[in-house]
Nucleic acid binder design. Structure first.
Lengths: 195, 195, 195, 195
DNA sequence: GATGAATGAGGTTTCATTCAT
DNA sequence: AATGAATGAAACCTCATTCAT
């Protein structure tokens, strides 16, 4: 597996720093989160952070890599289940959505990170590859309309992230039926109408 | 009309400051854009910015309000055309998409703004209202599936913004056919199948 | 007479600027009183102040000179009345005290001015000369104890200014009897006990 | 004892900052003393000041509290000696006067502080309480004239501070005899004439 | 005379980073 | 490994002064 690293291998201090950093950055933004605040929140001294991370840049970069890995892992595992395309699509949507409403700070962090001086690559290509291949396969088997796979990735990810933000910040949460409806609409639009 | 304010009524200096600010923030982020940089880029002295805006906070707030107004205006005008729901939906998608690929900095600015300490309201409800009513109308007339209108807003906005970012930052741009396909997929999924 | 200038000869604008300046400085201090604030409070434009005064330094300097003149005038007039030393002393105390409780901002302004970079001469010698001569005369005539006249000046001015501040800022105001008592105590101490 | 804090318990850096601040402010005023100047004079970096004090406001506030404490201490100790009222009065006058001519910068600092935006309470009530009680006691025992104790406080403090300033800034210093004369005059005026 | 937009030096404060302990 | 006092560049913002109108 090419996952960058697992939390299990990380020291408690480093874990606490990671946790503090993403929470504080999500709350206050990069600029609103000085290293001293991270240190205090993580219960360590400022200097200690610099034992584990070369710089603030690096800390944020590693935090990003770690969470990117979590999402990629979810997609991979879901796709790897080898069931029907429709069912797999449903699972991808549900699993990612579930992850993002349980970890909204990760989603917020991603969006802040993408357009920040901390990021070098501008587009969140990190989990496009897997989805891309999945949709390409579906098109190849004639189950999904013959359009650019990128389009399908866009529709899927765009709806998941926007829904998760709606769930978190909107006035009404999306219930099970709502999620089902979204998936249905997308699949109805993407799938080849067989009869 | 209740548009906040028009660029025509704004002094040249203020316009230059606005323009510089959104470009620089899109490029470097809020933190990476000191007032001195805005001033230099706009060809004015730092003090001049403070003649027009109380603080960096206020400058960014007004910039947001102004651009939010532009987007709302597009949606309103498109919806106001009073044509079939399908055609209106196509136009909304195309017009917003067109606006965002021509003004990607506005899109990036919005995403940076939403999750920043500069923002007070967390969710971008600013152009939900108009779209919401449009979809509700379509559901009422039996042309659109009977689901929560929020879902349709999410699908629409999520696909537009993600597509615009793909177009800007992705390896391949979306052509006319691709746009058409996305719209088709969404409408196929959302519309009530009449026959 | 060597009074610097009279208010009568001053234009309305200049008068308004003077009035605003002393009030605002008394309230907010020199640093807390920008020229823009003076302008606004006086109902004139910033540039207008610079028609009447070369700089903030000069404005404050003239303000000081003007008010110093007012106090000197009071002392001179009181001393010029040519009555008994005791009565003159009483009048000096009462008149100055009266002036300072009616114009506490002048007193506050003096104290702020004395120890400020705006002041060149450190000690408030401006009204020492007249009082000095008065006490010297009293000593010469054997009515006042033979001590350094400076001492008597100190006792007089120190009690007046401290009383005026007590009256303004203290919890209880000094009534007529209190004033009388202070004057009595001072004169009892200073006067030669004749019998 | 309820003394606020002692210099002994303060770090060397903080001490140096305190010392620099009072000297520079006395010389140049609040506005004429930027933090960079304090830092340079104290031999520390600007940031270091902010390690010890939250802001310039707080630095000045603490400086005031510390020096107020010194003066209160002198008065308390002098009054606590439990000797005759006359002798105590003489000691108070002499000790405070001595303190102020040895620490004129403290006196100047007080006067600048009192009428500054840094001060919240306008009147220097800080050492009124102790003196007030002392005089009240004297009146109760029939040794001092029955007038408002505030009056006696005013006469005492007014003469001490004005004398100290005369000594520092006047053309001629006040010698031992002069001090004695002032005390004599005040006591003659205040004391009940017993025979 | 009068205005107030424009300037930019300089003020207060923050914060990533270092290093002696 | 861990600490946190110390640093100083750089951020935001103010304000005395100028000058075209």
């Amino acid at each position: 597996m090419n996952v960058q690293f697992k939390m299990e291998n990380i020291s408690d201090k480093k874990k606490a720093i990671f946790e503090s950093t993403i929470n504080l950055i999500t709350e206050n933004g990069f600029h609103g989160t000085p290293m001293s605040m991270v240190a205090k929140n993580a219960g360590v001294a400022v200097g200690t952070i610099y034992h584990y991370f070369e710089s603030k840049n690096q800390l944020i970069g590693e935090l990003h890599a770690y969470n990117r890995g979590r999402v990629v892992e979810i997609i991979k595992e879901t796709i790897g289940e080898n069931i029907s395309h429709k069912k797999t699509f449903q699972n991808i949507w549900t699993n990612l959505y579930q992850f993002y409403i349980e970890n909204t700070n990760v989603l917020i962090f991603f969006e802040q990170f993408i357009n920040s001086p901390y990021n070098i690559n501008k587009f969140p290509t990190h989990f496009q590859g897997e989805l891309f291949d999945f949709f390409k396969g579906g098109i190849g088997k004639g189950e999904i309309k013959d359009v650019k796979p990128e389009i399908l990735v866009v529709l899927t990810l765009g709806s998941i992230t926007t829904s998760a933000k709606l769930h978190k910040f909107g006035s009404i949460p999306l219930n099970f039926t709502d999620q089902h409806n979204i998936i249905q609409i997308l699949w109805d639009g993407m799938a080849v109408n067989k009869e």
